[in-house]
Design a protein around this nucleic acid. Structure first.
Lengths: 358, 358
DNA sequence: TTGAAAGCGCTAACAG
DNA sequence: CTGTTAGCGCTTTCAA
């Protein structure tokens, strides 16, 4: 087989065959030198290593992955690349302008990155856009040994399909499917505590809720909010529809509130991103936070601490979320864990100035 | 060959063979449906797609990569994971505490990420720590079609070896090797302008330089500094050795300066990171910036804008650096570019308050 | 301790 | 438009 392996002219990428030939051993020995060094005599190993280096041998991960049945990589799937493709062209802005950085997903990703590095996994972000008929999530799933996905990033069907092949952790979701591990933060409790603060300490009664109910974590936040309201004997207001990824929705809601003539006492937002957008929109209209109206957020992203006033919010342990996901997957891949894992991480109420506290 | 493909009990990952069988076609047809849909009759394609979905077929990127000779992924290599492994255990701190985020490399990475996504490349971060005899950089090189590396992250030898197999862009370095594409920012000019400002506007004469000369970009910064000093007829001070990645080095230098009894008028630091560390160290000693001593940085990271006072610094177009790297590699992989590419991006002097300006 | 040989799952000629 | 058939480069029993 290794006959016509090299054409006389073009220098092809050297393979195990080339290294083996140069070192005067078999390809199996070359392979062992790199994967099971203890099984090879030291002197032989040295020859092989020398040959490999002088030839500029770079082992093919594809070949290894195919033969071994695993790649050594973990994937992180954030959202469907196609859906926000145009958003990308609309906002190619520099860091700091327009888009605040880092956002929730960035901080989680950071945790994933750090933990992957610590444990020796390669990290695969996103998939290639080469297979029109295949969802992106499937493409990335085909490249890795395990996958981490944000809640709502993958359609249920895709999630099921991927989870039936490789371990999957869904971040910030609720337990939804057998075989899908989850990490979720105590959204309900956090929002409950925050709302209670607004009602009990500040005595607010006219409260608006800006957010969405698209994924379990958002539902839980609203749930915590509702419970606090009900416990205080107050009616639960409708959710004013706002999407964290799109400030325009927040701006629109604020505009509607302003136009209505009477502002609520406080706007409870289900993310820091929309809270910050709301503060900006209010300020632009000459309304001061928290003097004229209080605003609260959720997440505890960097920008919430740096804004003026700092946001009263609920802090999620974002880096830990990312780290925990990798840890779970590492356990499972190592065979040290079999059952479904569902990890609950605590959240922390953070008092800023935006609620009206000094 | 596809005889004993499925053992009766354990449900194995379905392959093209399984899909082909279920759809009543050949494996080539299955392959075409996903890679060259136009070559397959619509009705056939539908059957195949249906079969694939019901079986939960997830194509193996390893197999595809091996057969095609390319993976569709681009790698980003930041530094040797082994070297900073313990640093990682020392500072597992949360975002915002102690270690700042995002740093220079994070912002560049963001650009790489965005551009990879836009162009449909998968992004591979780091390599697996599984091959004791192989440098990490080699492992990641084996996984991708092209590699982006930070200057100084890879030993020259490794760089050469990798570059002989796949296109490589080195970020923030100088042109060093044939076949290694580079992107560099005008470090010299930026630092020259900043230093000139200190000398001409503020009239400083007693100037210290904190930094290193480890990679070309740092050398260029010092070069710009030196030129400005010489042009003003001032002696060029020695470099006080400080490493951006290790605040302890900065703290030590500041301590030495404080102990010496007389502080310079200004500390010119070759990164924002060390400048921020210096400001902190000075503050801890009761020295106020810029009243008692001025401090300047380089990079323009987010933290430099948020610090009090904001840092006078030189801003690098970090996101653009990352994007450009991907663009170059995309061109080369598409065969639209053959020669070595060396791109020079501009830097911008940024006036903060830390130099003594109001 | 090392070698021979059979795949891993997919792609891409080349036929038909 | 679809099927046949070689490999892609590496790992891994099984023998020697």
């Amino acid at each position: 087989m290794p006959e016509n392996r090299r054409s006389a002219d073009a220098p092809r990428k050297p393979t195990v065959y080339d290294v083996a030939q140069a070192a005067g051993v078999s390809i199996a020995t070359v392979s062992f030198v790199f994967s099971k060094p203890e099984r090879v005599k030291a002197s032989t190993a040295e020859q092989v290593l020398a040959a490999a280096e002088s030839l500029g041998y770079v082992p093919s991960a594809s070949a290894r992955g195919l033969a071994r049945g695993r790649t050594g990589a973990i994937g992180l799937y954030a959202f469907d690349y196609l859906l926000d493709a145009d958003e990308l062209d609309v906002v190619p802005g520099t860091v700091g302008e327009g888009r605040l950085f880092p956002l929730y997903a960035d901080e989680v990703q950071r945790g994933v990155q750090l933990e992957c590095r610590r444990r020796g996994f390669a990290l695969m972000l996103g998939g290639a856009r080469t297979t029109p008929h295949l969802p992106h999530a499937i493409d990335v799933a085909g490249r890795v040994d395990a996958l981490i996905a944000f809640a709502g990033a993958m359609p249920d069907k895709t999630l099921t399909q991927v989870a039936s092949r490789i371990p999957v952790v869904e971040l910030g979701g609720a337990v939804r499917q057998e075989g899908v591990h989850t990490i979720f933060v105590d959204n309900r409790e956090g929002m409950l505590e925050l709302t209670r603060h607004l009602l009990e300490v500040h005595g607010y009664r006219d409260v608006a809720y800006l957010g969405e109910l698209g994924t379990p974590e958002f539902v839980q936040r609203f749930d915590g909010f509702s419970s606090a309201m009900q416990a205080a004997g107050l009616p639960v207001p409708e959710v004013l529809p706002v999407h964290a990824g799109d400030d325009a929705t927040t701006i629109a809601v604020v505009a509607r509130l302003l136009a209505s003539g009477s502002l609520p006492e406080v706007l409870v937002c289900d993310t820091d991103q929309s809270a910050l957008a709301a503060v900006d929109a209010l300020r632009a209209a000459g309304v001061t936070v928290p003097r004229d109206v209080a605003v609260t957020g959720f997440d505890g992203i960097l920008a919430s601490r740096l804004s003026a006033p700092p946001l009263t919010t609920v802090r999620q342990p974002m880096e830990l979320v990312g780290r925990s996901a990798v840890q779970i997957l590492a356990d499972i891949l190592a065979g040290e864990s079999d059952a479904d894992r569902h990890e609950l991480l605590g959240s922390a109420f953070v008092l800023g100035g935006s609620c009206g506290c000094s």
